[in-house]
Design a protein around this nucleic acid. Structure first.
Lengths: 147, 147
DNA sequence: TCCATTTCTATGCAATTGCATCTAGTGCGC
DNA sequence: GCGCACTAGATGCAATTGCATAGAAATGGA
């Protein structure tokens, strides 16, 4: 039961605050523009990046750190909107394969400018280029197994 | 509509991932130990730190970046458990003053060891002392108005 | 092969969150 | 001291999340 140092506690507290602040900015800009929540974009992007190689839900889950049940329902909603399609997996009877549709690609592309501007407002304007790189590097360490 | 640099986008993406990873660790450890969610602790700590000077809900809201309606209900729950008390504000007929109770202080104290260990696991073990300080400094910039 | 265990995904139900709006007070300009 | 915009906080209702568990298929032994 190791005790965290003062600066570790500060880092954690500020991670919460910073995340909440940035997320609020991003979500509210998306909403203002009439777009769905951020998570929709993230899934669409992930599927689009995967290209030909379709993804399984559990792969998405691992990559994006979503909970299983939330992802399951998010997929429902995305499918209901026609942004993605589910097809049964051939080699695993339990599973399914996910693919983005043309409609999904189109909406992702339309969202990007608004999302990009929000990211710039929430993060970019607060940091120098060097700071942004440093921050990205440090944050990565938090969710990758330590050496 | 400024476009964010590549590293700003990466910083944002990793902020999401890192936050989700750390939060999951922390919340699940609290739950395992039979404690209420993190937000409860945060409010109790804030009220305890305020000491004599009682806080108004809107002050908490600003400090912790909660939404108004969520905080309102969180206060309901904390009061229902007897961890805090609401009293009408003397100088503002609309408002109220919040104070932590002895019971609230006791539970906060009991939670801390578990919470501390979770912070160490989620953050401390991934960073050197220097990295932790750097991360804390950079994150702070994200929610303070830029110079 | 058979059984036990694990993996993958879905879902009923309760709790929480988000949204819009409401009430009550405050404070300012006139 | 009136009217009006604004602030503090609560709340009904819908959507989402969390939790526990189900069910179905794969996997790994004995």
């Amino acid at each position: 039961m190791a005790v965290p140092s003062e600066s570790v506690v500060r880092a954690w507290t500020r991670l919460e605050r910073a995340h909440r602040a940035a997320l609020t900015t991003v979500e509210s800009r998306l909403k203002e523009a009439g777009f769905p929540p951020l998570a929709w974009y993230d899934v669409l992007l992930e599927l689009e990046s995967a290209g030909e190689r379709r993804l399984r839900p559990f792969e998405l889950q691992k990559a994006m750190l979503f909970t299983q049940y939330n992802l399951s329902r998010l997929i429902d909603r995305l499918e209901a909107q026609g942004y993605i399609v589910r097809t049964a997996s051939e080699d695993d009877g339990r599973g399914q394969m996910l693919a983005i549709t043309a409609k999904g690609r189109a909406v992702r592309r339309k969202i990007w400018p608004v999302y990009a501007a929000a990211i710039e407002a929430a993060v970019g304007t607060h940091l120098s280029p060097f700071e942004a790189r440093t921050l990205a590097d440090l944050l990565e360490k938090l969710y990758t197994p330590r050496a």
